[in-house]
């Protein structure tokens, strides 16, 4: 009886495990099936490098270059803002802060992760937008920068918690060895602890980027969604995620527009897949 129970439980776990993999494969399969249908009528070149996104035109113009660059500029902006901040925060929590501040900050960072993205979008729209608009004397506060700032807030918890893990798991003996040689605390941090934690730090950055590039709601609310080729970070941009979210509801099933959105989803899937792969590789990288 006990044997049978054990057997049953094992099989259920096995089934669940395979179900996860199966779902991923199915999702990819459906995405690819509809996404690739687009290329019967539109050449991949025009899709990837076309500069006009006008899916409601006759015939539809489905060049995703402005959307890709939109995602890129927002993501880069968010990375540039969140990585130094997140890294400083992680170092402070992991190395410098006294115990009670450390616990307080950790709780704070976790709380930040719990804020739904729509709330960040909402705060961004009412507070951040006007600040950006007035600071740079822009006609509108709905710009790539506004989106980047909001996304940076969303990426920081991911970056901080993974980096902090990486920093705390640096063996204590490295720190002692460095201090015993007469290095100061700061020298120890930047010459020994950060290099020793580097793979975790890179992984944290990659996962932060992954979080940012896939985010939809807040960017849709904050970036203005104009499908222009962005020249500066102070202009409205349209990201790939916002495009899919904004257009899926009204599109005619089976139209070129519909397939173009799936193809866009496929592009996004491939990008995030490679980012996660890079993060994974960094995390498991062995020292030479």
């Amino acid at each position: 009886m006990r044997r049978f129970k054990e057997f049953l439980i094992e099989k259920i776990i096995l089934l669940n495990g395979f179900a996860c993999i199966l779902f991923v494969i199915l999702i990819f399969f459906f995405l690819a099936k509809d996404g690739l249908t687009l290329f019967k009528t539109v050449s991949p070149w025009h899709f990837l490098f076309g500069t006009l996104w006008n899916p409601l035109a006759e015939p539809p113009q489905v060049g995703i270059l402005p959307l890709f660059l939109g995602s890129l500029i927002v993501t880069l902006g968010a990375t540039v803002i969140s990585v130094p901040l997140g890294m400083a925060c992680a170092i402070f929590i992991g190395e410098i802060a006294p115990r009670w501040i450390r616990e307080l900050l950790k709780a704070g960072v976790e709380l930040l992760a719990a804020i739904p993205s729509i709330v960040i979008g909402f705060i961004g729209m009412t507070m951040l937008g006007p600040i950006v608009k007035n600071l740079f004397h822009l006609p509108t506060g709905l710009t790539a920068l506004t989106g980047s700032l909001a996304l940076a807030f969303m990426a920081i918890p991911t970056i901080v918690s993974i980096m902090e893990d990486a920093i705390s798991s640096v063996p204590r003996s490295y720190k002692e060895g460095s201090l015993a040689l007469g290095a100061t605390h700061w020298q120890t941090i930047h010459r020994v602890i950060i290099p020793a934690a580097s793979s975790g730090i890179v992984a944290a950055v990659m996962l932060g980027i992954g979080r940012v590039i896939g985010e939809t709601m807040a960017v849709m609310m904050l970036t203005g969604n104009a499908s222009v080729l962005p020249k500066t970070i102070l202009e409205p941009v349209r990201t790939m995620t916002a495009t899919i979210a904004a257009e899926m509801g009204e599109t005619v099933r089976g139209s070129e527009h519909y397939f173009a959105l799936f193809a866009l989803g496929l592009v996004l899937f491939v990008i995030t897949f490679f980012i996660n792969l890079a993060a994974d590789a960094a995390l498991h990288q062995k020292q030479k």
Binding site: L52, W53, N54, L56, A57, E58, P66, T140, L142, M220, M221, G224, N225, A226, S227, V228, P236, R238, A242, A246
Partner: peptide
């Protein structure tokens, strides 16, 4: 018709 929203149009949700 051939008219389209200008690319610079802000599309709000």
């Amino acid at each position: 018709g051939p008219e389209q929203y200008a690319p610079a149009t802000l599309m709000l949700p």
